[in-house]
């Protein structure tokens, strides 16, 4: 995969994501309040929190799907005004175009960037090989397993060379074995491309396994509760889950998330009963 590795390099200078004082309301309901986060170029950050805390809303704001005030979100100093190819998005599921083959799905981005059809296809082949699915290039997405579809989704996001990769619970719908394999694969890809990653999950093990830093969000209105740097060796050893540092971080996350989940529960009971 030389063509992909070349685009990485050891010290990426781009992909600095800044979120300042982000507040989002849906109607009169505040979902996010005074949320602030800076992600350094090449850093892998997991956004962790109880369900309903607005993790995905933060991600959608960064992707440009939710309108925000012009100064609140920026990538490398450029304010986010809408969706853009500098921020690649991977959804939980069902986001491949069902009417396009695997190859056409991945070639879509380059074509939109103005690449010729032949050039776009050759780029798509490179990235399909990168995720190990070149043999399935001519299949329709519906004929692939959930895990394979997500690998195509990742290839489709990466082929545009985004400086920030946004992932919204990408492995949430997969079975446990597949999820573990996907996590390993993702880290291997990330070691090569070294893009900044903002990854939303509610799975503590997943967050600790993947991230350089875990950001825990509060019950709604969502804000940053804790910034936890993960001090585990990279590449992750097979027994990473047994390391004392892992157990300590997990305990810390569990306590906070249990407490926030309780607050979400109480909040819902107050407001919806």
């Amino acid at each position: 995969m030389p063509a992909v590795a070349e685009q990485g390099g050891s010290a990426p200078a781009v992909g600095r994501l800044e979120i300042h004082d982000l507040s989002i309301r849906f109607g009169t309901n505040p979902v996010i309040e005074n949320f602030g986060l800076t992600v350094e170029p090449g850093e892998f950050v997991c956004l962790l929190g109880p369900s309903g805390c607005g993790k995905s809303t933060v991600l959608n704001a960064v992707a440009g799907f939710v309108p925000v005030e012009s100064v609140t979100v920026s990538v490398d100093g450029r304010p986010v005004k809408g969706p853009g190819v500098d921020r690649g998005m991977v959804f939980q599921q069902y986001s491949l175009f069902p009417w396009k083959t695997v190859l056409e799905n991945v070639a879509f981005g380059p074509r939109m960037q103005g690449a010729s059809r032949a050039k776009a296809r050759s780029m798509a082949r490179t990235y399909l090989e990168f995720v190990g699915l070149l043999a399935f290039a001519d299949r329709y997405p519906a004929t692939l397993s959930g895990g394979m579809q997500q690998r195509v989704g990742i290839a489709r996001a990466l082929v545009n060379h985004p400086s920030v990769l946004l992932m919204d619970e990408p492995f949430g719908a997969l079975d446990a074995q597949t999820r573990g394999l996907m996590q390993e694969n993702l880290l291997r890809l990330w070691e090569e491309i070294r893009a900044t990653v903002l990854f939303v999950t509610h799975d503590i093990d997943e967050a600790l396994y993947l991230a350089d830093r875990v950001v825990i969000m509060s019950a709604p209105p969502g804000r940053v509760l804790l910034n936890l740097a993960i001090d585990l060796p990279r590449p992750r050893p097979d027994d990473v889950f047994a390391l004392p540092a892992f157990a300590a971080a997990k305990r810390q996350c569990l306590t906070l998330i249990r407490q926030e989940s309780q607050r979400v529960f109480d909040h819902q009971r107050r407001n919806f009963s």
Binding site: A63, G82, P83, F91, M112, Q113
Partner: peptide
């Protein structure tokens, strides 16, 4: 599916 439209916009469509 609105996610397909969102995906397309993210990819520069």
């Amino acid at each position: 599916d609105h996610r397909l439209i969102s995906s397309a916009r993210s990819l520069g469509a």
